[in-house]
Design a binder for these strands. Sequence first.
RNA 1: CGGGAUGUAGCGCAGCUUGGUAGCGCACCUCGCUUGGGACGAGGGGGUCGCAGGUUCAAAUCCUGUCAUCCCGACCA
Length: 570
Amino acid sequence: MKMSKLFVQTLREFPNDAEAISHKLLVRAGFIKKLTNGIYTYMPLAQRVLTKISNIVREELNATGAQELLMPFVQPAEVWQKSGRWQVYGRELLRCKDRHDNDMCLAPTHEEVITSVVSEVVNSYKQLPINLYQIQTKFRDEIRPRFGLLRGREFIMKDAYSFHTSQEDLEREYEVMAKAYSTIFKRCGLETKAVQSDSGAIGGAVSHEYMVLTDTMVGENDVFYCENCDYSANSNHAISILPLEATNGADYGYSEEKIVDTPNVKTIEELAEFLKINPNCILKAVAYIADSNPVIVMIRGDKEVEETKLLNALNALEIRPMENSEVREYLNSEAGFISYRNVDKSKVRVIFDKTAQNMKNFVLGANIKDKHIVGANLESNIEFFDVSLVKEGEFCPVCHKPLKVTRGIEVGNIFQLGTKYSKPMNACYTDENGQLKPYIMGCYGIGVSRTMAAAVEKYHDDFGIIWPIQIAPYHVDIVPVNIEDPEQSKVAYELYEKLCALGIETVIDDRYDRAGVKFKDSELIGFPIRITVGKTISEGLVEFKTRKDGQMIKLTPNEAIEKCQQILLN
RNA sequence: CGGGAUGUAGCGCAGCUUGGUAGCGCACCUCGCUUGGGACGAGGGGGUCGCAGGUUCAAAUCCUGUCAUCCCGACCA
């Protein structure tokens, strides 16, 4: 490709509406252009990267026996009503009507359609198992799109769905996919960690997320992991063994239950300070509205509520903190002094976190303004749930060593769905005994456009992007310092022809610009290899430079070609 | 949806306080010169100042409303 013909416009400055480095660089280097919030055009350079990632995905999935198909992006409400998600999915599902006034939607995912398609084709256990996938645009009307491609509204996703006759066979396929995923990301030049996760709106029991670990804010997930064993989990799913700490209020002299004055002491910090007590001896109450029902969570004072865990414990869809007016209305109390005692349990659901379990003689809100109870103890027969957020340093649930935390960008995930979709949609096959059985399903996603952004997030420097060669838009950038110099031009074009003939993807920067412009663009765009044809041509040499380590060596044109081949083979 | 900020040429910005000819840099076009790290000179094209009302002889500028975008919190590939 001649640079003069390549449809790309690099910018001299970073766009001012971008925050994430991948967003800034992809825009500045001319890979993407924003149409509107969370919706981008993939320019030719980006399209080449996406194609490469997609092809790696295809090769690895095809190797497992999965088959590619392509499903509709615009879907009728019917299939969503059948699965029950038309009501459940919320405003993230972009709905519209066709000219006949039928309800339609833009596909955020394809469980409904694939289940419907498979149920028409697969009638017998003899046709199972099967794994089908597609690579396609998805639309999710995210509350807050941000970070460019990392959280767009429209994005490219590979989604695969498998169908089985038994849980065992699903688990077998799940392992196959897990392996394929590791290979796929590795081939894209990305190290990933498979972490346990909550299954969210997609549903199902077991799931793992593939995270690219990063120390920046754009990793939107907190990942807890153990350095000793291989336990790792998203914060919305992580569990821990708490370090042994004093949780006995008697240590602070509160061995007898009584009400004490705590004027204007509202927060846990203030209360701990006021009573000269460790926060972990306070049983705090956090009030929520879950699907318009009041809930209070009793949790140890030094711990936070993990709302996804709470959502699951309550089997609720939506959750938000209670407002002060609602505290008065439902709990007949003031924020800061709430307690599970003296609330109407028929109206207010009370959840005890497991951190409350071993507390003795603790401090508790008195449900009266400016008063707390000290030396309190829990009644027996209380059911405990795990709804607390893990903290770094708490102990691994597997091997009891301290857990670490890091940020992660989720580039893929795998779910064991079970019969979550097949049952409501009545999608069944006939088994060996002539019985109708719902399919046991799994589903497996990879964010293709997000993977591209994650690679940039991971591999860049002050000059621009450093593409892993496996997914780089082109392998080599030939820079004739002065295209008007007949000797340089001749050598550069010969080199270009030869590399192209060898199937090496090459750009020749044939622009009449000065060398500095070409060098800057080369580094910004992130070509893995740059071959400069300049003054050393008098000695019959060109300069061979790799983007990754910045190493420059002088070689003859033929040696340069060999070197390219060598690098591409590795 | 709540809190903060910003909308002026393709991109980055100034002008607004104190109303009076719409500007700068980059990019683009022409000519010249230049060719090893985003050159230089001369000339040129391009903007209903987000949108709608209002105040005024006069609005990018003041007032009201509205829309959009970005950042911080609840969603997910």
